[in-house]
Design a protein around this nucleic acid. Sequence first.
DNA 1: CTGCGTAATGCGTTATGCGCAACACGCTTG
DNA 2: CAAGCGTGTTGCGCATAACGCATTACGCAG
Lengths: 247, 247
Amino acid sequence: MSQTLDRALQILEYVGDKPRRIGEIAEFLGVHHSTALRFLHTLRKHGFVQELPGHSYRLGSAMFRLGFQSLEGIELRSLARPAMERLNLLTGETVHLGSLEDGTVLYIEKVEASHPIRMHSRIGAVARLHCTGVAKGIVAFLPLTERDRLLAGYDMVRRTEHTLVEREALEADFAASRERGYALDDEENEPGIHCVSAPVHSGEGVVIAALSISAPVIRVDRDTLLSYAPALIEAAHETSRQLGWRG
Amino acid sequence: MSQTLDRALQILEYVGDKPRRIGEIAEFLGVHHSTALRFLHTLRKHGFVQELPGHSYRLGSAMFRLGFQSLEGIELRSLARPAMERLNLLTGETVHLGSLEDGTVLYIEKVEASHPIRMHSRIGAVARLHCTGVAKGIVAFLPLTERDRLLAGYDMVRRTEHTLVEREALEADFAASRERGYALDDEENEPGIHCVSAPVHSGEGVVIAALSISAPVIRVDRDTLLSYAPALIEAAHETSRQLGWRG
DNA sequence: CTGCGTAATGCGTTATGCGCAACACGCTTG
DNA sequence: CAAGCGTGTTGCGCATAACGCATTACGCAG
């Protein structure tokens, strides 16, 4: 492991949160100002950070140029896109694709509802494991050992009054999801929004992602939402098959 | 400047292009395999790269998580969004926001046309300076010294038969754009697509971005496209004013 | 004016990154 | 089956390059 690089990457994470000043960064790393400055200069030279008026630093253009570029290279995303558009056409609601990456679930694609409803999701964002549709659609279908690993030390924060905050209750929900073949988010992450979600399998048969349909309860009642499940599952299966899955 | 960090950032750029194997990376940097491997391990530990089956490496989840996160922090983007949606509603066409970052123009926001037409643009992508609407909408309105700096060593590659490949012709086009108050891309980047584009000014009065409307020639003829210009300019002005510009 | 935070530069010290070599592993080739 | 190739891993000695510190300068606020 390279100490220098390690520190620099910590800076990127730290600065990504919000713009920071040198003093903060140096203190955060526990290094001298001049050391932090040396890193920032190199990062800036490559466009990974950018200096704002007032001596604070934020992530720079190279960061999001490469970020989007990397997304482009994910075949799952392009493979799933047609199925997502079909689901959107069928239901008129927002369709998400979430992928399990390094122990967290990230939104990697999204097809917006025709009726624009504000939703706290965006591509590149982290989907909470215990209360979002996409994440539950993945985690519920993972083997127990994987679930244990993911949820160890994970803080099941209460987001709404429906949020499941006990591991035991969550496991019961997972079991029900496996029974049904799809997972449900019943206003557990955002009040007024519920989702159905189905897992996507890799060529090796491992659950690696999930498709979800999200809708406001005021427009779509529970029964209607559940009626989307078969098409959703079929879309997820189709995507899985394209990845080489023979389920 | 930090040599270690410098090399690591080169790896990110290099790997961002397409997945690479160790040998390539080590050769690219001109270092020993073990050195390249040390970098990759550290990068992987932080999720900036990811190992694919078959010993190749690509950018990892931290990269696009932070990439999107950084985009979120750009106030220009959220400020311009409402105006972009209004333009989209008015015209039904695709609206882009491009921003000048470190000498290149990047697409940082996009509102899709209702009629889905495939277009080679995406958020995070680089907009060619000499032939795309957004970029011309910025560059045309920069002072000559800035234009010289940006275009020095820039390769004006021919993209279509309409592409301006001579600096002189481009300058004439810029002058006409300044005269009109908006720039034009007349199928110069993609055959069958034309755009109008107007500059956005920062609080200090510097041109930092542009809004553009793109449409296929088969649906929107030239006169119709030009008729969008006043609304486009007004939208760009509104965004500029929100940035503190008093034009 | 003083005090605070940042920026830039130079320098001595040494930690740390470097290349090399040796070996294990898996895959393909002959 | 053996040979060859590319990769992954570990250990070690060397010298480079990163580190911390001090100094100076700058801008801003009290």
